[in-house]
Amino acid sequence: MTYDETGPPGPQRPEAASEASATPDTGLDAVRRLHVMAAGIPGARVVEGVLDAEFADVWAVMSDLEGGFGEFQPDMRNVRVTARDGDRVTAHARSRYGMRARLDGVVRPGWCWLQSRFVIIGMAAEPLPDGAGTRVALTGGLRIPGRALIVPGAGRELRRSLDRLTRRMD
């Protein structure tokens, strides 16, 4: 696995295979979407890497909010999904420090965006052409309560998350 960390916008890349794109037939893959979202949130960083695993296997872990998600997101424990309506999700989570959070957002193939009053979590995954693996990207962190602002220092946590995800997929 290789990764790089950037502020938005993201690096230019060859177009990824689109069968699992977060926005099919509209011209912007999920990882690019994540860079756009980060561009609108001062302080947000994006870490990005390529995993040597099938998209379906990677996304099965990343989108399993009550299971795999908590295994690689260092501060998300005991996540419980309380409502689903289409791609809309509500979940309750408790951090390792005991803080509770109600997360609201969107989960669909290759794309997850969640927010609570204190946290923003963004995840994207795209299959690479010719089965060459899966590109993943993460953003988010602690936010200024209720505002689209990330507290400085989120990059290290994001890299830890990506490292954990990589190990989880090995």
Binding site: G27, L28, G40, G105, Q115, G146, R147
Partner: peptide, 30 residues
Amino acid sequence: GDTIAMNDLLDHLIPYVSAICAPIALSSRQ
């Protein structure tokens, strides 16, 4: 500051922006 609204705005704008960018930027549309 509602980032879910940002997500929904992105969904909303992508087709509009694509319709303008695609015929100008062609293969560089993404």
